[in-house]
Design a protein around this nucleic acid. Structure first.
Lengths: 344, 344
DNA sequence: TTGAAAGCGCTAACAA
DNA sequence: TTGTTAGCGCTTTCAA
């Protein structure tokens, strides 16, 4: 106890160590380690004495030291765009469940769609020596990760592919989903359809636009460039873009919303109008069923689960070439996408 | 390089250490440490040589070792009920922002409303020596945390108070919010009002029920016990409870929903009926404005921010008695809560 | 069955 | 300005 009390009072609030437990129980350090880790080769009597010392001192193993010695942290990092976005909740939760099944903890952070912040976060996680990394990338150049991946940090990209490196990716088929959604509007008689999406540098936004153009081309319909608007999903921007498409000499009769935030703003705006405008949105939203909003739904939880499973397979030593998986979407027709154009 | 190559190939995937960098740059270990940490007292020329070696080797400081030596992990743990619940998204994000401002990372996990899992998670975080802990408790006995708190792990409880220990708590005024919501229904002429809440062992559920009873008592209205239903927020359970209250000899004319999940189910059910039933829900929901749902809104982000700020104040050495903070709610009247009873 | 010694990669303290 | 030594708390190795 003398030594215990003498030690630096500030470090870890002065917690007892295995050495303290050993001294109190009158055994060697290694015996304490054996008991704490449930290793065999300790007589019941010795074990009891050690347990008593542990209880009395309030000892808890310092995993920082353990990690340093063992070289594995039993933790994985998850970098996403915004923890507060409802799309990422189920995704995070799914990753967490898989991590938990493998005895690993989750460290996570938001990049706020800023490539520098993404890199900063990723490298901080690498410095912590997370065993693996799941990244929803904000940036487009991930060469900064090359030394880390080479050094053994398993990495899986989700929702968007990595840029300029070859890495595992688990994506949603944005192109196919958007194409199906726009085709659905065309099938209901629309010929002038607006597309309002996220910033074009975001992979999913670009893919969805490509799907829109493909559907229009499939039907032999021309695309007036005033019908396409990409940019921030800030409500003011989306509102302005939508209003522009709905007015003017050749207004659109239908809208395709590129993601959940755009859909929400579009629905708010359309709710204040008399003439119905058809709407299909990418991503499902809570209560969208009650509002009758037709959407292209993607499975965020499956995205997270698939990515985490891939990650742990890599951590278990499976080494194969990086793969890209694309999950399919589902069209949920609820009314807003089945409104015919005026006069049809 | 020889030594570098000789070392255990599996540990951290064999990453270079400061010692390797020092050898390559032809300097001492401490000089590398100085450069890596931006400490003064290194000539520009030496620094350049060290930087080159760092680049060439792909060195990244091992924060596990740093943590062990410094005694601070610069990370905090967040234990909540379910990462996927939209209520916790903004809360987590707010905690993350505060942590980031203090240079700390966030490790988080879901208790799934299971006290054992909560304890397991919390103790795992303590073993990692997180500097602090933010907990949305599932259990009601937190004496297991006493040795940890005594050892210096700052802890703040959020949304619900700790059980059987004295600790900081940041809560929403559930009692006051529910009381106001029910009073609002009474003010619109309702006399028989149903309350459908979460399991009574959850603090917020009990407080909201207390608020309901207080509002009824304030107005001199009796409470028929068939009007009160607490239990799981599983849609089937909520649906059955709601239907029971709406049928029978003395049906209620208004409902108070105890949380966001109950509200969603209630709205779905009421949408399928002809006779309008008044509804006020606790917690706001996305798109509730468009559906005209009147709610008692709480500020999840403020909850997280306040708790995190309190935590870091403690980590900065402020030591005062544990406090309890209660944030107020806001009634958002949107229509569903202003429906009069039939015949009024 | 038990324990002593070495060392994981870093930082603090001190010396040159 | 630079380097050497000790040691953070644990696990590994090897000897008793």
């Amino acid at each position: 106890m003398a030594e215990f009390a003498r030690r630096n009072e500030t470090r870890y609030g002065n917690r007892p160590t295995m050495k303290d437990v050993a001294a109190r129980a009158g055994v060697g350090l290694k015996t304490v380690s054996r008991v704490v880790n449930g290793e065999p080769g300790v007589t019941p009597d010795t074990e009891r004495r050690v347990q008593e010392a542990i209880e009395a001192l309030g000892f808890r193993r310092n995993d920082s030291a353990r990690v340093l010695r063992k070289g594995r942290t039993a933790s994985i990092g998850l970098v996403l765009e915004d923890l507060a976005d409802p799309f990422y909740g189920p995704l995070s939760r799914a990753v967490e469940e898989v991590a938990r099944a493998h005895g690993a903890l989750l460290i996570n952070g938001s990049s706020a769609e800023d490539p520098d912040r993404e890199q900063e976060l990723v490298l901080a996680l690498c410095a912590r020596r997370v065993d693996g990394l799941i990244v929803i990338p904000a940036g487009h150049d991930h060469r900064y990760l090359e030394p880390e991946i080479k050094a053994g940090v398993a990495t899986v990209f989700v929702d968007r592919p990595a840029g300029r490196i070859d890495a595992d990716a688990v994506l949603t088929d944005s192109y196919g989903g958007a194409r199906e959604g726009v085709a659905h509007l065309i099938a209901h008689g629309h010929r002038s359809i607006g597309f309002i999406g996220d910033q074009p540098r975001i992979h999913t936004a670009a893919e969805r636009l490509r799907g829109y153009r493909a559907a229009m081309a499939d039907a032999g319909l021309p695309v007036d460039e005033r019908w396409v608007s990409l940019g921030s999903t800030d409500p003011a921007r989306v509102r302005a873009a939508t209003e522009a498409m709905l007015s003017g000499t050749e207004p659109v009769t239908a809208l395709f919303a590129g993601n959940n935030r755009v859909t929400v703003t579009a629905v708010r705006l359309l709710a204040g109008r008399d003439a119905p405008i058809a709407l299909v949105g990418f991503d499902d939203i809570e209560l969208a069923d009650l509002l009758g909003i037709t959407v292209i739904a993607q499975d965020a939880a499956a995205l997270g689960r698939t990515a985490a499973e891939r990650l742990f397979r890599r951590l278990d030593g499976v080494s194969e070439a990086p793969t890209r998986v694309e999950l399919t979407t589902r069209l949920l027709a609820r009314g807003s996408g089945e409104v015919p154009p005026p006069g049809a």
